[in-house]
C-alpha cells in the first residue's frame, strides 16, 4: 500500500490515525481514549465541546428522543452585513456545516426512564449564539414542560446573543426567561447544565436561573469577556476567574459534575421530584 511505502510516511499516518493533541493541555492522547470518554482529556480532565447530537446520545435513554420544532431556522430580519459578508450567507453556511437548522436542538425523551424536556445548544452553529429561532425553540421547550408538567433540562454552550439579529436577539433573553418564570409558578423543575463556554446573553438569561445549576468541570462561564474586563479596569484577574470552579466557590452553581457521571446524577436529582 502506498502509505506504507516509507517508514516515515507510515509513522505519520499511524500517528494521525491514533494520536491527537488535547485542545487544552496540548499533550498527546489516544484518539480512542478521547472518543471513549466522550471528549474528556485523560491527562488534564478537559471537557471538550460536544455536538448537540453527541450530548443527546449520552444523556437520554437510547431511542427515546423525539425532536421538536426542528424546522425553525434563522431569518435575516435586519438584512445584516458586516466586513466579512452577509448574515444570510453565514447562517446558510452554518446550517450546511452542522446539519442543524439552529443553534439548539430540542425535544423530549427519558433519563433512566424519567421523562424530560431537553434543549441542547450546539457551539458549532455560529458559536451557539442566541437568535430569534433559538429563543423560540427554548421558549417552546419550556412551554412544553409547562403544559405536560415535565422537568426541563437545558444544556448551554454559547458565546451569547447573535448580534446579527440586533435587538431581536437581545429580546430572546427576556422571552426565554418569561418561559422559565411560568415553570417557577407551577413548581416544575428546571435544571440548567452549563458547559464550555456559557457567556454573555445566555449566561445573563436562562442559563444561570436553573432551580438547579450544574456545571461541567473547567467550563468558561462569564458575563463579560476577560479581555474587556482587563481593558476596562486594568485589574489583575485570578487564574480560575470565570470557570465552573470559580462560580461554585461564589455560590452560583450547585455542583460540578464530570461528564461520565452526568446522566446518573441527573437521574438521581430527578428521582427526588415527586409532584
Amino acid at each position: 500500500m502506498a502509505w506504507f511505502s516509507s517508514r516515515k510516511a507510515a509513522k505519520e499516518t499511524l500517528s494521525e490515525d491514533i494520536w491527537m493533541k488535547c485542545p487544552k493541555c496540548d499533550k498527546h492522547i489516544f484518539k480512542e481514549d478521547w472518543q471513549n470518554s466522550h471528549k474528556v482529556c485523560p491527562k488534564c480532565n478537559y471537557h471538550g465541546k460536544l455536538t448537540a447530537w453527541e450530548r443527546i446520545g449520552i444523556t437520554l435513554d437510547q431511542g427515546t428522543f423525539v425532536e421538536t420544532n426542528k424546522t425553525i431556522s434563522p431569518a435575516d430580519p435586519l438584512e445584516f452585513h458586516d466586513a466579512k459578508g452577509s448574515y444570510k450567507d453565514k447562517a446558510a453556511e452554518a446550517m450546511k456545516k452542522t446539519g442543524l437548522n439552529e443553534s439548539v436542538v430540542t425535544g423530549t425523551g427519558t433519563i433512566n426512564g424519567k421523562p424530560v424536556v431537553l434543549a441542547v445548544m450546539d457551539f458549532r452553529f455560529l458559536g451557539g449564539s442566541l437568535s430569534s429561532g433559538c429563543g423560540e425553540k427554548i421558549l417552546r421547550a419550556a412551554n412544553h414542560a409547562y403544559d405536560k408538567s415535565i422537568p426541563l433540562i437545558i444544556y448551554s454552550a454559547s458565546g451569547g446573543a447573535r448580534m446579527h439579529e440586533g435587538i431581536l436577539s437581545l429580546m430572546q433573553m427576556a422571552k426565554t426567561c418569561a418561559g422559565i418564570a411560568r415553570l417557577n409558578e407551577k413548581n416544575i423543575p428546571y435544571i440548567s447544565v452549563l458547559t464550555d463556554p456559557t457567556t454573555g446573553g445566555v449566561s445573563a438569561s436562562f442559563a444561570t436561573v436553573g432551580d438547579i445549576n450544574i456545571a461541567e468541570p473547567g467550563a468558561l462561564i462569564a458575563f463579560a469577556g476577560r479581555r474587556v474586563i482587563e481593558e476596562t479596569i486594568k485589574q489583575k484577574l485570578p487564574d480560575d476567574f470565570q470557570t465552573s470552579e470559580y462560580l461554585l466557590e461564589h455560590g452560583f452553581v450547585d455542583c460540578i459534575i464530570h461528564r461520565s457521571e452526568m446522566k446518573a446524577k441527573l437521574h438521581q436529582l430527578l428521582s427526588f421530584y415527586s409532584r
Binding site: S203, S205, V209, F223
Partner: peptide, 19 residues
Amino acid sequence: PGLEGEERGQAEAIARNLV
C-alpha cells in the same frame, strides 16, 4: 464589566430580573 460584578453574579442578577 469588572471583577466584582462577575464575582457577585452579574449574569445571574440580570437573568433573575428577567424572570
